[in-house]
Design a binder for these strands. Structure first.
Lengths: 208, 208
DNA sequence: ACCTGAACACCGTTCAAGT
DNA sequence: ACCTGAACACCGTTCAAGT
């Protein structure tokens, strides 16, 4: 679909034959990972890619728009990672929860700065629509897992949002504590196992 | 419209007889609350307080130092709020947990931007020492609550860090989800009750 | 001691102009 | 269409100099 006659060998002066937008996002993610959010500057991004400092504005209205787009790709990658893990999980609720929790925490550890960005996006009425949709793609996985667990009798009854919220909270909170370095290393060691066991007890039906 | 009644009883030229540091922190907290972290600028702070833009550097080595100090005051206020709530709590573990969780979430809602800052501080070997101490002042409350609960037989046995980490995680995660606006209003409504019940089940001893 | 004023090297954003 | 170059109004940080 892309330019049929475009030479692939790079001519330095017009290297970005239409994919400057993608190149900006890729580079932004690299510097976010390597140097943190404070080091993200449109002008430096442009410099790195060999375009003028005004070029990015053709693809992102302002800096926030680039951050929004970056968060969006983050939610998409998170969804892909979790869907992959879910596909490899066993049939019981305990197995699915275990696999999803581990995949989420793995993603958080490998993309700490990006995850932070994802949850700190300003909620413009416009951008948040797309973001919420992307975020829901993976939380739907958690929700359907709980729903299935209820059918199997492994999860207590109750409205989905209610049973799901606490599980979402432990997950999100543990990932946040670990990536913020708020847990001493000893606690982080087996902390994840404890969190999973804790969540399972919290989800379990009342004894009869 | 503003000009005529200016003087107050403050001499505009040297109002800060030694408490510029405190004034900077107070004003920083206000603009953090009102206009968000992106709007925090040393130069604007100085302008607001009627000093030169170089004056803040006498009290804070750089911007990060001011943010660190701001986070520190945040942890101190959080500790005070939780200790107050804890003092008013009942004798059972369930009552103490309820009171602490609600106080934490209240603090998170009233100081969303500040809490964000508190947990996103760069961990310089130096600043993090004081920060960790301040953070531990309130988490010690949670830990001793759990310890007491174990003595009362309301909380399952196990090393403190392990039992405490999941509780800390739900708390932190729920507060984060709410302040980030990631929960639909219906879910936020009774979400807190569900989170507390969930945590209690997670802490409960195994049935015998 | 505490603060000022100027200077430096950066920003994000806008806009006429080039190709 | 896509990008450039200059311009504008901001930053944080440093430092000689004032009081």
């Amino acid at each position: 679909m892309a330019g049929t006659l475009m030479p692939m060998h790079t001519r330095p002066s017009s290297y970005h034959h239409g994919d400057l937008r993608a190149a900006l996002l890729t580079r932004a993610e690299e510097t976010l990972r390597e140097k943190g959010p404070a080091a993200l500057s449109l002008r430096e991004l442009a410099r790195d890619l060999g375009v003028s400092h005004a070029a990015p504005s053709r693809h992102f209205r302002d800096k926030q728009a680039l951050l929004d787009a970056l968060a969006l790709t983050g939610f998409e990658r998170l969804a892909v990672a979790l869907e992959g893990a879910h596909g490899r999980a066993g049939a019981s609720f305990a197995q699915r929860l275990d696999v999803i929790v581990r995949a989420y925490v793995d993603f958080a550890l490998e993309n700490a700065a990006l995850l932070d960005l994802m949850y700190s996006i300003k909620h413009d009425p416009e951008a948040s629509e797309a973001l919420r949709a992307a975020a829901e793609r993976w939380s739907a996985l958690l929700v359907s897992g709980i729903e299935e667990g209820q059918r199997q009798g492994e999860v207590r009854e109750g409205p989905l949002e209610r049973v799901g919220v606490p599980v979402f909270a432990v997950l999100h909170g543990y990932a946040g504590l670990v990536t913020a370095g708020m847990l001493p290393p000893e606690a982080a060691e087996h902390g994840l196992d404890e969190v999973i066991a804790f969540a399972l007890r919290g989800c379990a039906p009342d004894a009869v």
